[in-house]
């Protein structure tokens, strides 16, 4: 049994301690905002925040989350509405398939938490480890910059 905070709410899961946090979130806790991409921390589509730091949940055992605070895409919602960052992704239509979007947004959130007024180059560098195959990169960069500007 592992206990941690998921999007501010206390959760207890009956899963093996070594189970990847990704699968516990997606399959035990019904979280949509994490995606399996590679299982090797190479693509970023499973990115969540643990105590505010971006981590790749595919290679993080659930035991590493014990007693800590995990934030997923769902946790960014403000009163059920998209956050500024999420809304900026919608406004910029920053996706084609959108499979990478959850990880992109979490990575970008971590950047904005640390640096509320990033340059374009800061955004690109911060997201460089998150892969997108549809070629929505420039839209994604615009969305992050827009959110920073509107904050």
């Amino acid at each position: 049994m592992v206990t941690f905070k998921l999007n501010q709410a206390e959760v207890r899961v009956d899963a093996p301690a070594t189970s990847p946090l990704l699968f516990v979130l997606a399959n035990d806790l019904g979280v949509n905002g994490v995606k399996y991409g590679c299982g090797r921390s190479q693509c970023g589509s499973c990115t969540v925040l643990i105590d505010g730091e971006p981590v790749r949940s595919c290679q993080t055992p659930v035991s590493a989350a014990a007693g800590r605070s995990v934030t997923t895409l769902e946790g960014l919602l403000e009163g059920g509405k998209p956050s500024k960052l999420q809304q900026a992704f919608i406004d910029e239509q920053a996706a084609q398939c959108g499979y990478c979007a959850a990880g992109m947004i979490m990575q970008a959130q971590a950047l904005l938490d640390r640096n509320p007024a990033p340059s374009e180059s800061d955004v690109r560098t911060s997201l460089n480890g998150n892969l997108c195959r549809c070629g929505a990169h420039n839209r994604i960069v615009r969305a992050v910059l827009r959110a920073a500007k509107e904050a």
């Binding site: 905002g33 895409l73 769902e74 998209p82 919608i90 239509q93 996706a95 947004i105």
Partner: peptide, 8 residues
């Protein structure tokens, strides 16, 4: 389909 993809 984009709002759902951005909000979980």
């Amino acid at each position: 389909d984009i709002p759902a993809k951005m909000t979980g």
